[in-house]
Design a binder for these strands. Structure first.
Lengths: 339, 339
DNA sequence: ATATTTTAGGAAAACATTTTCACAAAAAGG
DNA sequence: CCTTTTTGTGAAAATGTTTTCCTAAAATAT
């Protein structure tokens, strides 16, 4: 039915090997022959059959993006889609297509994953942190398919990962607070088990400590990750004998609750209590005054993950363990201007 | 290197055809042979090579999801990711994998799309409304690959699409308003060119009209899709000689602006001005009192799109032009209770 | 002018499966 | 007991490229 390389060869009066060589830009083809083949391709509207190419070359030019992809995923992982878009873009620029896969609940997920890998449906794998099953790292390593975790899996030394530098983001927060000459700074985070939250908190505490400031325990607030709880915790902070001069909010949703509490108490921002948050998406645009944000370019994180994976495809031994994209401080009106 | 069907055949003492038949659940294999083959497969950890299967069968079991996938896509198309997840899930349940593809800006997008289709990289295509290039419908139809638009492309009669019933959603809004005995109802929408906004507005106006109510022109407000403009427009509405008794907001971002204006004017919701919005994600949770929402299950839209595409794969002649998932009214505290 | 190297292009194998067809053996029918 | 049908299995073709050799001709060196 469809026009094949054979038809092109016939039309151009050459062999199929020659056509293939033209298609793949080999250098041992004379300009005239090349032109003749090109012409035949154009005339017959030939496009290589991707299935046959995959088969013959032994590579699909597909990359698997492995993650949790539940209903309302965007609620729970607002950054994932942007990471995905960044990775897809970079891969597409290098001739790769991104495939979406989630580990299903039903079957034995380990077996599913093993089969997925050994079916060689993809040349490489990106694993989003939202997706983890028991023994996953081992299965992936045994599968021999180059792969990179997006988000630090916190495991062995042979595992490749790329992540946001949350610790550094925390340090940036501390640094900015100190540059504004705030010493009594509170921190409102997600629950204590959350990986990202803990890294940011540690970075923040470390940064403050480095300059000789120690944050008292009652200034460190863990929440249930809801706006309401951030509101409550902020009220408690304001009710302390010595309320904080500034508040760092670990994400932009918590910030909404905190701002509400400050508003209700008629506290001026930043004159009475200054305010700094992490992450811009999706809620930071709703906050007034314009918040100072320590932001992460998550699209770029996706891009970098793809770049690294592409390198690993060329050199499977490559060990990738790095922080992509620096946290970026965006000065808003909710902290003092820096000198 | 990898274990092939030949190894399995050898191990089980049968031919490769027999192994293939076992793998594909043909019925002409005796139970004993079948068991022997299964055992060999298990023993050798054999997994079919997906590339070879694709090649031999002439189908990849891949579905292309075609859309705009820019940086910060989630800002501009908050529903897309959920649609994507729904479609992926349904396809995965039927053995298909979803591939992500965006039409690039650089090259001639038409040519790119043609090549993409004729390379037969996928068995079917889902096209998200966010992605449209000149002549796309024609290229897709000529490409012969079964495809379905998610979102009404508003074109010819041979085009398959599945969409949200925005008109009906608008009618629901009108109906609810009338059930609450509000007759003076204003509508705040996105800009007049926006497809979804216009459909919802038309449905709303039509619904009101059906019961004999005609919305005056100055109750119909188009915005630049920003929260700020919704705020301004709402203030203007409140400043009218005869301000509306209720406001319908075409999406949840606009609602934030409108609520702000009502708050500032110390207007009680719903006692003085009632309030209804479309769409819950991502901002509706931030509004107090709990808004009455006309919501759409966009994940389900994705699922339905996949269901239809799967049907179309079996029967390529199938014409799909339908509205998936009914709009759902969720009564909040921002309109009166219904009788 | 001859020997050597380089170049351009073709023949054929390889890739791992599915699928068609043929053919025994077994079962059923007369 | 012989013919016909059914059943289970295997041989071989087909899928559309890439890639490895191989060879003839052309170019270069001697």
């Amino acid at each position: 039915m469809a026009v094949t390389i054979r038809d092109v060869a016939l039309e151009a009066g050459v062999s199929t090997s020659t056509v293939s060589k033209v298609l793949n830009h080999w250098d041992s083809i004379s300009p005239e022959t090349c032109a003749r083949v090109q012409e035949a391709i154009r005339k017959l509207h030939y496009t290589p059959n991707a299935r046959a190419v995959s088969f013959a070359r032994g590579s699909t030019k597909n990359i698997l993006f492995l993650s949790s992809l539940q209903k309302e995923e965007a609620y729970h992982n607002p950054h994932m889609f942007d990471i995905l878009c960044g990775a897809r873009r970079e891969l597409a620029d290098h001739g790769y297509t991104l495939m979406l896969e989630a580990v299903p609940e039903k079957r034995l997920p380990g077996e599913y994953l093993k089969d997925l890998i050994s079916s060689r449906i993809a040349d490489g794998i990106l694993i989003h942190g939202s997706c983890n099953i028991p023994g996953m790292a081992k299965i992936l390593l045994e599968g021999k398919t180059p792969h990179i975790y997006i988000g630090h899996p916190g495991l062995g030394s042979r595992i490749c990962w790329i992540d946001i530098n949350n610790g550094l983001a925390g340090e940036f927060a501390a640094q900015h607070m100190l540059e504004c000459h705030y010493e009594r700074v509170a921190f409102i985070g997600e629950n204590a088990e959350d990986h990202i939250s803990r890294q940011r908190l540690n970075g923040f505490l470390g940064g403050m400590y480095e300059y000789g400031y120690r944050i008292p325990d009652n200034y460190i607030r863990h929440t249930d990750a809801s706006r309401e709880d951030a509101y409550r915790q902020t009220r408690e902070l304001l009710g302390l004998k010595e309320p904080p001069r500034a508040i760092v909010c670990e994400n932009n949703l918590l910030a909404l609750g905190a701002v509400k509490a400050l508003r209700e108490a008629d506290i001026r921002i930043p004159e009475e209590v200054a305010f700094l948050i992490f992450d811009s998406y999706p809620y930071s645009g709703l906050i007034e005054p314009v918040p100072t944000i320590i932001d992460i370019d998550v699209y770029e994180l996706g891009v970098q993950a793809a770049v690294m994976l592409l390198r690993k495809l060329e050199n499977p031994e490559l060990l990738v363990q790095s922080y992509a994209t620096l946290p970026l401080l965006r000065q808003g009106h909710s902290t003092c201007k820096m000198q």
